[in-house]
């Protein structure tokens, strides 16, 4: 092996970022309306669910050679259906929309731990190959979600979800300053600048926490250690079995969170909401190895997809 020069290794380690930059520059020239605040915000908005799935996948893939979680996409779909059904149900029972959404989200998050627990127990205790364990769990969650939603979209979610999910972090009206989270009450036709969708803020926060956990805490170090050499990790006194179970639980928790965000953004629950994302999440990870960069790669993929659509429309 020839020794790499500093520059080459710098780009070698960060090729996903470099690729993203190239993409951005390229599509700014090719895609109509690509290089604009709105364009970028839309890309980020549509990347939120995929970014969270990729983050979920990152934990599992880091934790070991054959580690992969095929179930994330359908755990996400399951979460969209459960949260939408619960929110609609509470709403029908006459609860205030805030409470019905909050309750639905909390219950869904709690239920989202279950698939991960089953995955983790199968992988860690019964030594089932992760590919199979998560494939089996994927089938079970998908089937259950289809049953719950009778195969169609779960609707009648209170409209508050729409307000939250499609709201922006900041609004600015010329001459009236900023307002946060709520759209200022101005007459129709007034120019309102919308700055950063709320869900993007939430996603960035979650990914940042995940990246912190993976890079800076003992838990993250142990995850890398198990992935690097499971025997060495055992000898070093890491409780590998318990750790793996927790890793799979985190993965399914993040997938559930992604499902809830989907529910808020699209105000429906669909069992196959994440089916096309399942492998995208792996691809997003494989193009960049860390939690934060996985999310970046997800954005890159989205940007290439959406902007190529735009450039076609433009042509």
């Amino acid at each position: 092996m020839t020794r790499r020069t500093g520059l080459a290794s710098f780009f070698g380690q960060r090729w996903a970022f470099v690729f993203l930059l190239i993409e951005l520059v390229l599509f700014s020239f090719l895609g109509g309306g690509f290089f604009s605040l709105n364009g970028f915000q839309i890309i980020l908005f549509y990347s939120t669910t995929l970014a969270l799935l990729a983050t979920a996948q990152t934990f599992v893939i880091v934790s070991g050679g054959p580690g992969i979680d095929l179930s994330v996409g359908f755990v996400m779909g399951f979460a969209t259906v459960v949260s939408a059904k619960l929110a609609a149900g509470f709403d029908r029972m006459g609860l205030a929309p805030e409470f019905s959404l909050l309750l639905a989200i909390l219950i869904t998050l709690a239920m989202g731990l279950l698939p991960g627990f089953v995955n983790g127990m199968l992988v860690a205790r019964l030594k089932v190959p992760p590919f199979l364990a998560t494939f089996a769990v994927q089938g079970i969650t998908y089937g259950t979600a289809l049953l719950l939603s009778s195969g169609s979209a779960a609707i009648n979610v209170p409209n508050l979800a729409n307000v939250i999910g499609n709201g922006y972090f900041m609004y600015r009206v010329q001459g009236r300053g900023f307002s946060f989270f709520t759209r200022p009450d101005v007459p129709r036709g007034t120019n309102v600048f919308e700055i950063v969708p709320t869900m993007v803020v939430v996603t960035v926060l979650v990914v940042a926490v995940a990246a912190f956990v993976l890079k800076r805490t003992r838990f993250g170090r142990h995850t890398y250690a198990i992935g690097g050499n499971i025997d060495a990790a055992l000898r070093a006194g890491i409780n590998v079995k318990r750790h793996l179970v927790i890793v799979y639980i985190i993965s399914s928790f993040l997938a559930t969170l992604s499902g809830i965000i989907y529910m808020l953004e699209y105000v429906t629950g669909k069992a196959d909401a994440g089916s096309a994302f399942m492998l995208d999440a792996v691809v997003a990870w494989s193009s960049a190895g860390r939690a934060c960069s996985a999310a970046w790669a997800a954005c890159g993929e989205r940007s290439s997809a959406s902007s190529s659509c735009r450039s076609w429309k433009w042509a």
Partner: peptide
Amino acid sequence: PFYRYIAVGLILIVAIV
């Protein structure tokens, strides 16, 4: 038909165990 996915999942788990 939705039970089919669940059934396949459960049978897989039995197979592997």
